[in-house]
Computed example of a mutant assay.
Amino acid sequence: MTDNRDEQPRVIAVSRDDVHRFSKPVVDEVTLVAGWGIEGDAHAGTTVQHRSRVARDPSQPNLRQVHLFHAEVFDEVAEAGFRVEPGQMGENVTTRGVDLLGLPTGTLLHLGDEACVRVTGLRNPCQQINGFEPGLLREVLGRDEDGSVVRKGGVMSVVVTGGAVRTGDRIRVELPVGEQQALQPV
């Protein structure tokens, strides 16, 4: 049995880390900064901060300022014997009640009372996931019945409006106007 609170899309955890590690520690609150990312997080900045992308071209715009991951995947992988908790997949914001992977590019996610991010694309799950938990990559990267790749590594976004985001904050989804584009890896 679920109560109405569980049906409302919510932030169930926030995480940040000032160094580049796979998992991020859960904290009480994060501060989003417009055009920058999460204050105090190693992936914040106007240009790419992910080491593999910096090596290719450090002048690329940072389309991966804030990583959001839906806790429903934790439920799915638990059925396969994996225990994953907020922050462990490297996400900054863990959500429940929003089909992040089904959102179109450009969707605005209003987090709490102030903050807003624009979804830029999918996180492409990588081998680091198997370093965290051997075999987990096959659970978050697979193929559908048509043979298309299915990526369950969450979505990436940029900060449109800054503000504090906390566990329990509501999430409001604002779909883009006009033709909607399916998310692609960024």
Rank of each mutant, 00 (worst) to 15 (best):
M1Y: 14
D6C: 05
A13C: 08
A13L: 08
V14A: 03
V14W: 01
V14E: 01
S15F: 01
R16E: 02
D18I: 00
D18V: 00
S23Y: 12
K24H: 06
K24F: 03
K24D: 11
V26K: 09
T31M: 12
E39W: 13
G40W: 07
D41I: 09
G45S: 09
T46M: 11
H50Y: 15
H50S: 00
D57C: 08
P58Y: 05
S59G: 04
S59Y: 05
S59I: 00
Q60G: 07
P61W: 11
N62C: 11
R64I: 05
H67V: 10
H67M: 11
H70I: 09
E72V: 10
E72L: 13
F74T: 00
F74K: 10
D75E: 14
D75M: 09
E76W: 06
F82C: 13
V84P: 01
V84L: 15
P86T: 08
M89P: 02
G90P: 02
E91Y: 07
E91H: 09
E91I: 04
N92T: 12
R96H: 12
R96I: 01
G102V: 01
T105L: 05
T105S: 02
H110D: 08
G112R: 03
A115K: 06
C116M: 12
C116K: 09
V119Y: 08
T120A: 04
T120K: 12
G121M: 13
G121N: 02
L122H: 06
L122I: 10
R123C: 01
P125F: 07
C126T: 06
Q127R: 14
N130V: 03
E133N: 07
E133Q: 12
P134C: 10
R138F: 05
R138M: 13
R143M: 08
R143A: 02
D144I: 13
E145P: 00
V149E: 12
V150N: 03
R151P: 00
K152F: 02
G154L: 03
S157K: 07
V159A: 01
V160S: 00
T161Y: 02
G168T: 03
G168F: 14
I171K: 00
I171V: 08
R172C: 03
E174M: 03
E174C: 04
Q180L: 06
Q180S: 04
Q180F: 04
Q181Y: 12
A182H: 13
Q184C: 02
